[in-house]
């Protein structure tokens, strides 16, 4: 008997996308560290426009290793991981339900919450694996180039990408069990992700957004903070707490609601339309 068969299956389902993202992360890490020595002299006097300062996080200059790595890697790689988390989470709930494949798992003697938990575990493990496996690329490249930043700090920043990705994994999961189709779940989750990212990046330059910048999760997961000050444990714990709350909420909703088949799906859409109509004045 295989242990955690649904987790293993979930990891297998999303392994291609995870490998593609990991290879991108490794390639970008190698490229960033390789070009830094030839660029940092010319970047020394470069004044980054205000509109782009958000990408530097807490770093003062793009010419420093911290600023360079924040702008070139830690400003956008988390976005890729978060997008992966949302896509994978919605596909394992709303996606499998719409296709009818969820029936196959739910007809077995395992509680719905276990199905959900095993799926989450699989995706969460892939996210952690992608982050951790990208670290050796930094470590090895540093052996050949002059990049004055300790491995521990880089590892800290790499690990710092995991909690925010897990938080959006929880959001995708929640959207997947609430909304009637995968498309609507994706729209809502991606909408929130993009809004949060825009607020974070433009908030430093746009006056109107500066006051709400702290509401963005990307602000609290800023890679430069981890590179400069180490792992922000209190922030990590908050992210983990939110992720756990999302998972519990998703499990409670998933336990209680009807599971539709491809036959009954149109009825659920009708139900959703009625809910929307009911909210109109």
């Amino acid at each position: 008997m295989t242990r955690l068969p649904i987790t293993r299956k979930t990891m297998h389902d999303h392994s291609s996308a995870a490998i593609a993202i990991l290879l991108t992360m490794i390639a970008v890490a190698v490229l960033d560290l390789s070009i830094y020595p030839s660029y940092h002299a010319s970047l020394k006097d470069f004044e980054i426009p205000d509109a782009l300062k958000g990408f530097l996080g807490g770093a003062t200059s793009i010419a420093t290793p911290v600023g360079f790595l924040t702008a070139e890697f830690f400003s956008w790689v988390p976005l890729m991981l978060v997008a992966f988390a949302i896509v994978a989470a919605t596909s394992t709930t709303a996606g499998d339900e719409a296709s009818g494949a969820l029936d196959l798992l739910l007809a077995q003697p395992v509680a719905r919450r276990r199905v959900l938990a095993e799926k989450v575990l699989g995706i969460a493990a892939l996210i952690a694996a992608m982050c951790l496996l990208s670290f050796p690329a930094f470590m090895v490249t540093k052996l050949f180039v002059d990049f004055d930043l300790s491995n521990v700090k880089i590892l800290t920043a790499v690990v710092n990408m995991i909690p925010i990705s897990w938080m959006f994994l929880g959001l995708g999961l929640l959207a997947g069990v609430i909304f009637p189709t995968r498309a609507s779940a994706l729209t809502v989750a991606f909408g929130l992700m993009i809004a949060a990212y825009v607020i974070f990046t433009l908030g430093s330059a746009v006056e109107a957004l500066s006051s709400v910048r702290m509401a963005s999760p990307f602000y609290w997961a800023d890679g430069s903070h981890a590179l400069l000050h180490g792992l922000p444990w209190e922030r990590v714990l908050v992210f983990l707490g939110i992720s756990a709350a999302e998972l519990v909420a998703a499990a409670l909703i998933f336990e209680r609601r009807d599971i539709m088949s491809s036959h009954t799906w149109p009825k659920r859409l009708t139900w959703a339309r009625r809910q929307v109509q009911a909210t109109r004045p």
Binding site: M1, I6, H12, A101, D103, L104, P109, S261, S262, H263
Partner: peptide
């Protein structure tokens, strides 16, 4: 189910192994 939906990337045996495992 009235319409059997499977996991397209899994083999038939992987399906039976999954069910076998989940049913203990």
């Amino acid at each position: 189910a009235g319409e059997v939906h499977l996991f397209p990337h899994l083999t038939g045996r992987a399906h039976t192994e999954l069910v076998t495992s989940l049913r203990g």
